[in-house]
């Protein structure tokens, strides 16, 4: 239940909007729901609908329309490479293909350990620093600019270590 787990955050989010316009909070609440699993399931959508006084269908429409929300589970970390025109002119397509080849996946796929999904995305407003990508995880989004395949692989290695450490910690709880 989001309401129990994130009671304080939900209050803070709702306070941003006029009381009769709670629906505005749907996008921030969806980010909250996506924090743990990197996707939004039907139960979360129904709960958000309940909190906002709208229907689950209206919440699902938002999930479907906006590309940063996921309805199904992929990797814990989404490496999203901008391959739009300005980045492509600076070698972004080749960068992504080589990165995928090194990870033994195709663009849009997830690594065998279920951790890393590499996918092309549209312009991220960092055209002067291509090749670049963002890493989207439940914790948020971070930019990585002026990348090489090697620097990206080093980052991925770090993400894997972090995930392993976290798993270890969790298993001791």
């Amino acid at each position: 239940m989001l309401a129990e787990k994130y009671a304080q955050e939900i209050q803070t989010i709702l306070a941003k909007y006029p009381p009769d316009q709670r629906r505005s909070a749907v996008m921030p609440l969806l980010y909250l729901a996506q924090r743990d699993k990197m996707y939004v399931n039907r139960e979360d959508m129904a709960e958000i609908a309940e909190i906002l006084g709208i229907t689950p269908t209206e919440v699902a429409s938002i999930v479907g329309f906006y590309s940063l929300y996921y309805e199904e589970q992929k990797g814990k970390y989404h490496i999203q490479v901008c391959t739009d025109l300005p980045c492509a002119l600076r070698g972004a397509d080749r960068f992504m293909q080589e990165l995928c080849a090194r990870l033994n996946i195709r663009p849009g796929e997830t690594t065998a350990d279920g951790l890393i999904t590499v996918e092309p995305v549209m312009c991220l407003a960092a055209c002067d620093k291509a090749p670049m990508f963002q890493v989207q995880s439940g914790a948020g989004l971070s930019y990585y600019e002026n990348q090489t395949v090697e620097s990206a692989l080093a980052l991925i290695e770090q993400l894997r270590l972090d995930a392993a450490r976290k798993r270890g910690r969790d298993s001791h709880v």
């Binding site: 039907r42 959508m45 129904a46 709208i54 229907t55 689950p56 269908t57 209206e58 919440v59 699902a60 429409s61 999930v63 479907g64 329309f65």
Partner: peptide, 20 residues
């Protein structure tokens, strides 16, 4: 006043869904 069907996705993938 029953918004129980809606559009999901966008562009050419825009499609009608229901989650009720």
């Amino acid at each position: 006043a029953d918004p129980v069907i809606g559009f999901s996705q966008r562009g050419r993938s825009l499609q009608i869904v229901t989650y009720s």
